[in-house]
Amino acid sequence: MNRPKVTEFKKAKHINDYPTGPGFQGGHLVDKNAGWRTFRPVIDKDACVNCLICYMICPDGTIYKSDDKVDIDYDFCKGCGVCANGCNVNAIKMVKEEL
């Protein structure tokens, strides 16, 4: 797996459930960042030329190479819009999130 997955967080019931030192497992995620988003980036796959600029400049690393050019992991996208602004062919549109 290229990216860590969200795991369910179990609240510690007993002192023994807490980590025994300052060390902790890497890539341990219990929470998504999707709720931060006001605008959602949507890739127009026909316009996309697969130059991978968005993949390189995403601060959160949520854009990944896929079978169909690139895709976005919406669980962790914060909707900053860096990808849409950096796209040279305007293949990424920022669409307002609907509740």
Binding site: P4, L29, K32, N33, P59, D60, G61, K78, C80, G81
Partner: peptide, 15 residues
């Protein structure tokens, strides 16, 4: 393709 800094809580658009 691996991501080593993922799911962090930095502000949106953090350089």
């Amino acid at each position: 393709d691996k991501e080593y800094f993922y799911g962090h809580k930095a502000c949106a658009g953090c350089g």
